[in-house]
Write a protein that binds this DNA or RNA. Structure first.
Lengths: 150, 150
DNA sequence: CGAAAACAGTTGACATCACAACTAAATCGC
DNA sequence: GCGATTTAGTTGTGATGTCAACTGTTTTCG
C-alpha cells in the first residue's frame, strides 16, 4: 500500500503538457486547447455545448470558456447560439480545425508510442482500463462532499 | 490506437489536486507541498538537496524552491547550507513535519482506496507498473530535444 | 593556476486550471 | 402565470508549475 497514484500521474500529466506545447506549437495549438479541439473533431457536425465539453473532460466551465474563446480566435472552431436554448452555445470544428486535428493526432500517436514502446501490450491495455475506471468514479463524485466530517 | 494517455491522466491529476487541497487543509498542507514533504519524510535525517527533490519528482527547481520556502515557513522542514558544497541546501523534516506526514499518509491511503476500490488488484498493480515504466522514460529525456526537426 | 563551463538555488513572467460571484435564460412548483 | 430555483456561460482571483535570466559556487581542463 506504499504506492500512491499521485506522483506518477503528476509526472505524466506535467510532461505531457510540456510535450504537447512543444510538438503542437507549429500547428498553433496549445496543450490546454488540445482536448477540446479533439473532442469537437471526433464529434464533428453535432454542435457540442460548452457544458458537454466540460462534462466529458471533467474540466471547469471557466477553463472551457477560455479554451473556446482561444480556439475561436484562431479560426479552428465556430460558435453559434443554440436557438432551442438560448443560454447555450453550439460549438463546431471548422474545416481548418479539422485539418489541424488530423495533423495533431499524428503527433499524439507518436507520443503514445514513445511512452508505451517496449511495454507489454496487454499491460498497457490494463493500465488504460484501470485509469478509465478511476476516472469514472471521479465523474460521479463531488469532492466537496467527501470531507463533510473533517 | 484510439486511446491517448492524455485525457485520463489529466482528469486524475487535476482531481487529485483538488482532493488533496480539501483533505489536507486542516493539516495546513497544500497539494503542491505534499510530494516534497512525503519524500523528505521517507528519507528523514539524510539531508536532501533541492536538486534531488526536483530530480525525484521531476518538478522544476523553481517550484521546488517555492515549496521548500513554504514548508519552511510552516515549520515542517529545516534547511541548512551544505558545508561540503556551499551551492546546495540540505533539507530535513522537523518533528512537527513528521507528525503531519503520518496524518497525511492516512488520508492519502483513503484516496487510493477510494480510487481502486472494487477493481482487480492485479490490474491495479499492472497499472502502477506501466505508469512507473512510462515515468522512467521521461526521467531520461529532455523534451526540448525531441522535436529538433520540427 | 585560472578562465570557462557546469551546477544549485532564486526570482520574474507566463500558462493552465479551480472556485466564486455574476448575468441571462430556462424550468419548476404552487 | 409567476416567483424561486436551476442551468449555461463569462469574468476575476488564486494555486500550481514551466521557462528564462540571474547569482554565487564548484568543477574542468588547457
Amino acid at each position: 500500500m506504499e504506492k500512491s497514484v499521485g506522483r506518477l500521474v503528476s509526472i505524466l500529466y506535467r510532461k505531457n503538457q510540456v510535450y504537447l506545447n512543444i510538438a503542437l506549437k507549429p500547428l498553433q495549438i496549445t496543450a490546454s486547447e488540445l482536448p477540446f479541439l479533439l473532442y469537437l473533431f471526433r464529434n464533428a457536425n453535432t454542435g457540442i455545448s460548452q457544458e458537454a465539453l466540460s462534462a466529458y473532460l471533467l474540466i471547469d466551465k471557466a477553463a472551457t470558456a477560455r479554451a473556446v474563446q482561444s480556439l475561436l480566435q484562431k479560426g479552428f472552431i465556430r460558435k453559434e447560439k443554440d436557438e432551442t436554448d438560448r443560454r447555450a452555445n453550439k460549438i463546431y470544428v471548422t474545416d481548418l480545425g479539422e485539418q489541424r486535428s488530423r495533423l495533431v493526432k499524428a503527433r499524439l500517436e507518436q507520443w503514445t508510442h514513445f511512452l508505451t514502446e517496449g511495454l507489454d501490450t496487454a499491460a498497457v491495455d490494463t493500465m488504460f482500463y484501470v485509469l478509465e475506471e478511476m476516472a469514472k468514479k471521479l465523474e460521479k463524485v463531488d469532492l466537496q462532499d467527501i470531507w463533510r466530517d473533517a
